[in-house]
Amino acid sequence: MSSRQKKPPPVGGARTPTPAPLTGDPILRSTSRAVFALVLLFAFLLLWRGHNAPGGGFIAGLMTTCALVLHRIAHGTSALRTDPARLVPWGLALSFGTGLVPYLLGRPFLKSDYGYITTALTGEFEWATALLFDLGVFLVVVGASLAIVYALLDVQPQETVEGDE
């Protein structure tokens, strides 16, 4: 026998995803629910405050990716119901459109506008178009990073070497 043997491909060419090693762990599954919610809450706070303070779409996207990867490891399935790579073009279009609209109106590219709205529930509330740009960056970061992480999680080596058994 050679030191490298090729495993036969799966029947029908379809790969069945193998569950993560910790998927059935009840402690991880129960604590990941609370951690998932807290990390998402913090990510949305960073996204919300990002146009006025440090933070924004990039770091909120990374935090959301971490929460979604934790969910995938704990439960064995993605919390998203769509392919994460589909988020990238939507985020690019939103970010580019946010910069293009002011340019078409004769203002500098990516010029942000802001104003104030008063509601009975929140009182005076500031809005800014920079939040739309940050939302686009958020979608690009979540989509691209999750696509990369999920591709790495689904790697199934097809060759064995001596000592693999």
Rank of each mutant, 00 (worst) to 15 (best):
A67S: 09
G61Q: 09
F36E: 02
R72V: 03
L40T: 03
M63P: 01
M63Y: 14
F58P: 07
G57M: 07
L70A: 06
L45V: 06
A43G: 08
V69G: 00
A67P: 00
H51G: 00
L38W: 15
F42K: 09
C66G: 13
N52I: 07
H71K: 14
A43K: 14
L40N: 10
V69M: 11
N52G: 03
A43V: 11
N52W: 15
F44D: 02
T65A: 04
L68D: 00
F58W: 14
F58T: 05
A67M: 00
T64Q: 03
F36R: 10
H71N: 12
G56H: 09
N52H: 13
G61N: 08
V35W: 12
F58M: 05
A37D: 03
F44M: 09
V39C: 04
R49N: 07
F42G: 01
H71F: 15
L40K: 11
T64K: 00
G57H: 11
V35M: 08
L62T: 05
A43R: 13
M63S: 11
A43Y: 15
L38I: 09
A67E: 00
A60Q: 09
C66S: 10
W48L: 09
A53Q: 13
L68S: 03
V69T: 11
P54R: 09
L46N: 11
P54N: 02
H51T: 07
G57A: 04
F36N: 10
W48S: 04
H71L: 05
L41M: 07
H71Q: 09
V69I: 13
L70I: 06
L68N: 06
L70M: 10
G55W: 15
L46E: 12
N52L: 09
A43Q: 10
L68T: 07
L68Q: 05
